[in-house]
Amino acid sequence: MEKVVTFLLDGEVIQGQEGQSIMQAADEAGKYIPRLCAHKDLTPHGSCRICTVLVNGRPQSACTQPIADGILVESETPKVNQLRTDIIDMLFVEGNHFCMFCEKSGSCELQALAYRFGITAPKYPYQFPQRDVDASHPDIFLDRNRCVLCGRCVRASKEVDGKNVFQFVGRGVEKRIAVNSEQGLKGTDAEVMDKAISVCPVGAILKKRVGYAVPVGRRLYDHQPIGTASEEETTE
C-alpha cells in the first residue's frame, strides 16, 4: 500500500499518495491548479509555468513537483496568480492570437485562462512574429501563429501514438514546433485520430473542415471558466 502524504494547500489539509505531483494530489482533492502544458494523459513537462505554486515560499511547477509531508503550498494567492497572469499576458503577445476568428475560440484553454484571470486586453506590446502554417496534410491543419510551445503534441505523439511527428526546433524566441518531414505534415505518418492532434490546448493543431460546428453557447468554456468543473472537461 502506497504511503499517504499530507500537506497544506492554501491552508487546507490535502492527502495524496507518495510519488504524486502537487497537481495530481490537488486534482484528486478537487482543487484546481491552472495549467497549460500539463495534460492528464501525458508525462508532465513543467515548461509553461502556469501551474507555478509556492512550495515553502519557493516557486515550483505543480505538475512536476512531488508532494512531501508537511509542505506548505500556496496556489490561489494574489502573488501567485499575478505570476500566472503575467505569463498568460506574455503568451498572447508572443504569438499571433486572433481569438475573433479562431475556430478554437470558446474551447481554447489559453483564452479560457485569460478569462479566468480577468485579462481583457494585452498588457505587453504585440511581437507579431512571422510564423508559418502547414496545410499540406489532407485532414490536419497546423497554424504555428497560435502555438504556445506547450509540447503536448510532442509528448502525445511519442508517448501515446508511438510516433515522432512533432518536435521543437530553434531556441529562445526562435523556438518553433517542427514536423518530422521536409514535405511538411503530409510527409509524416500523422493521422487525424492521433492523440497528438486532439491534445492541442489552442487552435494550433486542428482537424480540417470542422471549423465552427459547435455553436456559440455550447462551447466548452461558454458558461463557466476553465477549472470550474473537473479536469475531465478540458481538452481531451
Binding site: M100, F101, E103, V133, F141, Y212
Partner: peptide, 14 residues
C-alpha cells in the same frame, strides 16, 4: 490568403 476556407464566414465578417 493562406487561411483555410472554412474560416472565411467568421473571418471576413470582421
Amino acid at each position: 490568403q493562406g487561411r483555410p476556407f472554412w474560416e472565411l464566414p467568421v473571418l471576413v465578417q470582421r
